[in-house]
Amino acid sequence: MAYTGSYQSQVFGNGGSPYPFGAAELEEAARVKLSPEAFDYIAGAAGRGLTARANAAAFSRYGLTYRVLHQDIPTDPAVTILGTSLALPVLLAPAGVADLAHPEAEAGAARGAAEVGTSLVLSAVTSSPLEDVAAAAPSGHPWFQLAWSRDERLARSLVHRAEKAGYEAIVLMGDCYAAGWRPRELSHAFFPYRHGHGLGNYYSDPRFWALAGHTPSGPGLPDDAAREAAVAVWNQVFTRPSFAPGDLATLKSWTDLPILVKGVCDPSEARCLVEAGADGIVVSNHGGRQLDNGVAALDCLPAVCAAVAGRVPVLFDSGIRTGTDVLIALALGADAVMIGRPWLYGLALGGADGVAHVLRSLKDEFTSALTLTGHHTCATLSLSDLTPAGPQ
């Protein structure tokens, strides 16, 4: 039993870590560190939080098959998704207004991901311009989440900027086109965009300022009057009122980057989107932040994978907290997963270093689980590795 070269060996050698390892402990440490309004914005969910809890609970319905026959072959958790090489099958999910967690914000997240060999999917509502985030981690391979604006020229501008800045894929935000009912945010009357958070991509876009009717006086946050006008316009143009499979042809005409659609839980929608040209599907219910009483995203994954039938990669998001969660999602058919709240908690506790800690912990736990279930790569995982654990 060798720990040599692992994150565990580093922790033992260092006599411990300044960061918690358990998901619950990580969340609690972030709660203590952050202001109540910032924490509740990050941790909150729609309604009573039933969907968010269902997302996490769904993993407990599966048991992993432990195997003892094995070969002396190193386990390699690396995958390649749409040309992007990842040291582990985990990306950082797009999560907005990261400066609520830490001043390093998305740039820190990008650096932390790059340190571990994986990628950030940059939110549309980032604290810093997308160019600055890409430049903060030159060795990273970031993807960009597009909120398809009502204004086509603004949407095209964001796509072209992302392609020029070196982003390797566009993830179309399909799971946040209407405001979810979020009581924890409402209890603080805290709408971060009203205070200038999350608008870095828009504040840095000439087309957006043309819509707002202002010309910024220089880099950085605009003055109060310009910010008020900007927030009002952003509310009007943030997302399109409709989306149909045929719209993908328009988006694909703007860029050569692969296009994934995020928020797909219905297998019939997945089938339509792939037939319309989507290069990838992300199964997600936005971490339970949009619709309460929703079906756990994990319960939607097998049917979506069956509908896609291997024609494009399927990624999974919503509820991943541990390395064994990652393994279960991959055994159910996902090609990779994304984590959201955990990386924001890590960011809150230690900036880029805290994000890297979360990813290194996941990588070690996943690699160990991969080995102990009889695998040396992700490619051989299948339903045979899972046993229904019965009602919980």
Rank of each mutant, 00 (worst) to 15 (best):
P219H: 08
L248G: 12
A232L: 13
D256T: 08
E269T: 12
L221N: 09
G218H: 05
W254L: 15
Y202T: 02
L221S: 11
F208G: 04
G220I: 14
V233K: 12
L211E: 12
V237T: 07
S217H: 05
A249S: 15
P219D: 05
N201V: 05
W234T: 01
A244L: 09
A210P: 06
P222Q: 10
A225W: 00
L211W: 08
W234R: 00
E228R: 15
G220N: 13
P267E: 03
F243K: 06
D224C: 03
L248Q: 05
P206S: 06
V233D: 01
F243R: 06
P216S: 08
L211D: 04
Y202N: 02
E228P: 01
I259S: 08
A232W: 04
N201F: 12
P219W: 03
P245A: 12
D223P: 00
F208H: 03
T255S: 15
C265W: 05
A249D: 12
P241T: 09
V233I: 12
R207F: 07
D266M: 10
L199V: 00
V264N: 02
V231I: 06
D256N: 10
Q236A: 15
S268H: 14
G220W: 12
S253C: 09
S242H: 11
F208T: 03
T215H: 10
A212R: 04
V261H: 06
T255N: 10
P219M: 05
D223V: 01
A210L: 07
G218P: 00
T239W: 06
R240N: 04
L257V: 07
P206V: 05
W234A: 12
P219C: 01
V231K: 00
H214N: 07
R240Y: 02
H197N: 11
S242C: 03
S217W: 05
D266Q: 14
T239D: 04
A212M: 03
Y203F: 15
F208K: 07
F238K: 04
C265K: 13
H214G: 04
H214M: 09
D256E: 05
N201S: 14
V264F: 09
G200F: 02
P258L: 07
G213T: 13
Y202Q: 02
D256I: 02
A226H: 13
D266S: 11
W234C: 02
E228K: 10
T250L: 13
E228N: 12
F243V: 07
P216Q: 08
Y202C: 02
V264L: 07
